[in-house]
Design a protein around this nucleic acid. Structure first.
Lengths: 247, 247
DNA sequence: CGCCCCGCTTGACACAGGTCAATGCGAGAT
DNA sequence: ATCTCGCATTGACCTGTGTCAAGCGGGGCG
């Protein structure tokens, strides 16, 4: 089984003036409230590309001071906390175009750790300035509310007491759709996280993740080899994921 | 076992001018950003007391148009959705002083149902006007962000794969603290929800809720008779809840 | 007053998934 | 090439909790 060809990120787009990163979800807000308006130039010059972070390198840690929202430009970020027994609870995986650090808005400090799963590049937006700007741009304020709300919705994926199969199917369908939204293949991609990461995210044992993968493969739902995965029967996966994704 | 004496809500405070409801969490924001400023009068006149809703009466339903944030002034509200199999998934219980409907901010429609568990009175805040006002009052905007963020945190309680005991302990400690914050006894209160409601919230079977109550009572952690509950050993309950509440 | 219904409790049993242990295997280091 | 380490797989077993079924009791209504 060969890896799918690596393709350049079709949305990220570096060299344009103002160092404006069109990957970022915020760009949508900017465009909505009128791309090109003079005020928006202020936002553009705030954008700062940081990284690359190497695999395993931390982007921020729990308790760090929060001063910027970041959009993932390339790579995958995992956020997690350690519970009282020291076990890692993965809160989410963030693909290119997705925004991390929103949940820190209220406290002023990050409530979780963020670590790079591969080579990661970010766009940073200074938060104080964004907040001030949001006061003047209703579209941006609405977009901030929307992003925060989405975070709440995502947490619900983990809330229900679903079976291992349902959780895994929902996880795969979610990845598929998010990759598709960024122009990648929705049926074949690399899992950038370990089995243990997936297990910690889905609240399963790593062994269970392995077993579900095997069962799904025996049932011709997927084909998986190490980190390379292909969704063979998206329809049936969606049926399995239906109750988790609430459709 | 007698019911604890009913005391008047020590925070709710009706008859003052502008129909301003000091129970509401928003009042905190108003006060922060300067109670008495001329702009705030606009907020005050927006407040509308609605209800009472009778036990079992719906406040809003999934898909209803969202136009107002509501703070609970009296009674308890349960929010829930029905999953693909038609089972009720309780998302939260809202006590006096807490805010419902925030998660609807982004979509313009409520993503869940809200029902009164006893006699409920609400304070309504027209959302469009609040949002417009938030643009001018940084304190209010920050408070909105804060409340939204809190919602994310609360969802995390349900996320981890905790044991029935841990979930129940965390639930009781949470209720205790929230009642305490509003001036009620933290060790003795009425459960306004059924065992089934608790089960649907904690993602357990109703029978398990019953069994955990019994075990906790045998261990002298609580004393419970129908809806009347007394926390006998808060310390040990907190130890049990520790990993869930992440302290 | 007595009926019924619904919420609650209790017991017996089954099974999904966790835990423990052993092994496989690929990638990077030497 | 070989060693080694960490991730992954597989099997055997066990336990927590769901499910099913039966029974209890209080409150509302006729």
């Amino acid at each position: 089984m060969k890896n799918p060809p690596k393709r350049p990120n079709p949305i990220a787009d570096d060299g344009d003036e103002f160092r404006f990163c069109s990957t970022c979800a915020f760009s949508a807000a900017c465009l909505e409230s009128g791309y090109g308006k003079p005020e928006l130039r202020e936002l553009h010059v705030l954008v700062e590309h940081i990284g690359p972070f190497k695999e395993g390198e931390h982007i921020f840690r729990e308790g760090d001071e929060f001063n910027a929202i970041a959009a993932v430009r390339g790579g995958t970020v995992k956020t997690y906390v350690n519970d009282a027994e020291g076990r890692e609870q993965v809160q989410g995986f963030f693909l290119p175009g997705e925004v991390i650090g929103l949940s820190a808005i209220s406290q002023g400090r990050y409530p979780c750790n963020a670590v790079a799963l591969d080579t990661v590049i970010l766009c940073n937006f200074s938060f104080p300035t964004i907040a001030a700007l949001a006061a003047r741009l209703p579209g941006l304020q609405a977009q901030l509310f929307r992003l925060l709300s989405q975070d709440i919705g995502k947490a619900a994926l983990l809330a229900g007491n679903y079976s291992a199969d349902e959780r895994m199917a929902a996880f795969l369908i979610s990845l598929s759709r998010r990759y598709a939204a960024r122009g990648f293949s929705p049926t074949r991609f690399q899992l950038t996280m370990t089995r243990t990461d997936i297990a910690n995210y889905l609240r399963l044992a790593a062994e269970s993740v392995s077993r579900v993968f095997r069962r799904f493969q025996d049932d011709k739902l997927i084909r998986v080899d190490r980190r390379d995965i292909e969704l063979l029967d998206v329809k049936r996966l969606e049926v399995l994921a239906r109750s988790v994704l609430r459709e």
